[in-house]
Simulated assay, not measured.
Amino acid sequence: MVEAAAPGPAGRGPARRGPADDESPPLLVIAGDIGGTSSRLVLALLDGAVIAEAEGPGANLRSSGAEAFDHVAEATREVLERGRLALGGPGEVAAVALGISGAGPARAAEVQHAVGARLRELGIEAARILITDDLHTAFLAGGVGDDGLLVLAGTGAVAVRFHDRQAVARRDGMGWLLGDIGSAVWLGRRTLEAVAADLDGRGPRTRLTEEIGGVLGLDLRAGRLPPSRTGDPRQDLIRALDEQLPAGAPAALGRFAPVPGRIPEDPVARRILDTVITHVLDTVEALDPQAELPVVLAGSVLTGPGPIHDEVAAGLRAARRSLSVAPTGLPGALLLAREQAGGALR
Rank of each mutant, 00 (worst) to 15 (best):
M1H: 13
M1W: 08
M1G: 12
V2G: 14
E3Q: 12
A4D: 10
A10G: 13
R16Q: 14
G18L: 04
P19C: 02
P19M: 03
A20N: 04
A20W: 11
D21R: 10
D21F: 09
D21P: 04
S24F: 13
P25V: 05
A31G: 15
D33S: 11
R40P: 02
D47P: 00
D47V: 07
G48Q: 15
G48M: 05
A49K: 12
E53M: 09
A54I: 14
E55W: 00
E55K: 14
G65A: 08
E67R: 12
D70F: 08
V72G: 01
A73N: 04
T76Y: 03
E78Y: 02
R82S: 05
G83F: 11
G88K: 07
G88Q: 11
G89A: 13
G91V: 01
E92G: 04
V93S: 05
S101M: 06
A103I: 09
A103K: 03
G104P: 13
H113M: 08
V115T: 10
V115I: 15
I129H: 07
T132V: 15
D133M: 11
H136D: 15
A138H: 02
L140A: 15
A141R: 09
G143R: 06
D147T: 06
V151W: 10
G154E: 05
V158W: 14
V158Y: 13
A159P: 00
R161S: 02
H163D: 02
A169N: 11
R170I: 06
M174D: 13
G175T: 10
I181W: 12
A184N: 02
V185K: 01
W186D: 06
W186I: 02
L187K: 01
R189N: 05
R189A: 11
L192D: 02
V195M: 10
D200P: 04
P204N: 02
R207T: 03
L208A: 08
L208T: 02
I212F: 11
G214Y: 06
G217E: 13
L220F: 06
A222M: 04
G231Q: 14
G231K: 12
P233G: 11
P233F: 05
A240D: 11
A240H: 08
E243L: 12
P246E: 11
G254E: 06
F256E: 08
V259C: 06
P264T: 03
D266Q: 08
A269G: 01
A269C: 01
R271C: 03
D274H: 05
T278H: 14
V280D: 00
V280H: 00
V280N: 00
D282K: 07
E285L: 10
E285Q: 15
A286V: 02
Q290L: 15
P294L: 06
L297N: 00
A298N: 02
S300A: 13
L302I: 00
T303M: 05
I308Q: 00
I308F: 00
H309R: 13
D310I: 07
D310W: 14
A314Q: 08
G315D: 05
L316R: 07
G329L: 12
P331W: 12
P331K: 07
P331R: 05
P331G: 06
L335Q: 10
L336E: 08
L336K: 05
R338M: 09
A341G: 09
G343E: 14
